[in-house]
């Protein structure tokens, strides 16, 4: 098991290095250097120290040096927690990133839990009641869930709640708690706001999971060892939950890593409609205004989240499947 984790750790670090390279490439993709943008900005402001500032930045990012040197400089800063500077907000990226990443992680994990909690029982029901009325209903709704873009769900939910409750349901806090320090009341208020993004983001993932759980379980129910379990004289419930479901979970756990991108993607788009204090709105703003350090940092952070998530999913898989543990 230790050897297994060790191997996965090495491959995770390797992937992270590759991810950071792609992130760096994306930061450099827009035509012209990002300093041009900043320079233009400073010119407009007519700051007298513009040239000095530019020179300082050129030095900081080693823009006069070759590209690989720039990368090393950037990535070593990254490791130290120096992510560069947002030109749009004229602040250090690290000041902007942390808080929002925290909320992103919370919303993502809550959505993930939500979709699993909903999807597993439905998937099991559908598989054990194949082609029944209930199965058909669930199948139909999961198709709809797969087909509606999450931002549209968010939009409709906002409109409906405005109509019904007469109040906006966006954000993660009420106005009164927006800038208040953390307290029990603020936490309750947070939970009251959290469920909408969680449902919206979790919904599309839920539909996919239901389909997957249903398919897996149907395959497993055809396996010989399920028949063996029945032949022992076990009750159908034990056969299904102890012997079949346990095996049907593997592909799901394996797909955990793969469902994370969807959750993170979903939360970024939904966050715009619901105006959440997560990475989404800031990220897309940064992209639109070509504030590439900010955007690149967010992208790499999201990817790192995924890589770590995948790593955890691998370990979870090894826990549930002895074949992988002893590989």
């Amino acid at each position: 098991m230790t050897a297994f984790i060790g191997r996965r750790l090495v491959s995770m670090v390797f992937t992270m290095v590759l991810v950071s390279i792609v992130g760096f490439i994306i930061i450099n993709l827009p035509p012209g250097t990002y300093l041009d943008v900043y320079r233009a900005q400073l010119m407009v402001q007519g700051t007298s120290t513009a040239d000095q500032q530019i020179q300082a930045l050129e030095k900081r990012y080693a823009l006069d040096k070759p590209v690989y040197y720039q990368y090393v400089k950037w990535i070593s800063g990254f490791v130290r927690g120096d992510f560069g500077r947002s030109f749009q907000y004229n602040r250090e990226v690290k000041e902007l990133v942390w808080n929002r990443m925290g909320f992103t992680v919370v919303v993502s994990i809550a959505s993930l839990l939500f979709s699993w909690l909903i999807a597993l029982p439905i998937g099991i029901y559908s598989a054990t009641h194949k082609y029944s009325f209930g199965d058909n209903i669930f199948t139909f709704f999961s198709f709809i869930g797969l087909s509606v873009p999450s931002f549209l769900v968010a939009l409709v939910l906002m409109v409906v709640s405005s109509r019904v409750f007469g109040a906006s349901v966006g954000g993660l806090f009420s106005r009164a708690y927006q800038d208040a320090p953390w307290s029990w009341a603020k936490f309750v208020d947070f939970l009251q706001h959290l469920w909408i993004p969680v449902i919206v983001v979790g919904m599309s993932g839920t539909a996919g999971l239901v389909r997957m759980m249903r398919g897996n379980l149907l395959d497993i129910l055809n396996m010989q060892y399920v028949q063996t379990a029945r032949a022992k004289g076990l009750s159908e419930n034990i056969v299904i939950y102890k012997h079949a479901v346990r095996n049907a979970l593997h592909p799901l756990v394996m797909s955990l890593g793969m469902s994370l991108p969807g959750i993170i993607s979903g939360s970024t788009v939904v966050s715009i409609v619901l105006s959440l204090p997560t990475t989404g709105p800031l990220y897309f703003n940064a992209l639109r205004s070509q504030d590439m350090f900010l955007a690149g940092t967010f992208l790499v952070f999201m990817a790192v989240m995924l890589v770590v998530g995948n790593f955890l999913a691998d370990i979870a898989l090894a826990v549930v499947d002895p074949r992988i543990r002893y590989e």
Binding site: M258, L287, R288, A295, L299, V307
Partner: peptide, 15 residues
């Protein structure tokens, strides 16, 4: 697969 799809697409499209 390590990149969330929409943010990655958005970054490339923005470029």
């Amino acid at each position: 697969m390590s990149f969330p799809d929409i943010p990655l697409w958005a970054a490339l499209a923005a470029a």
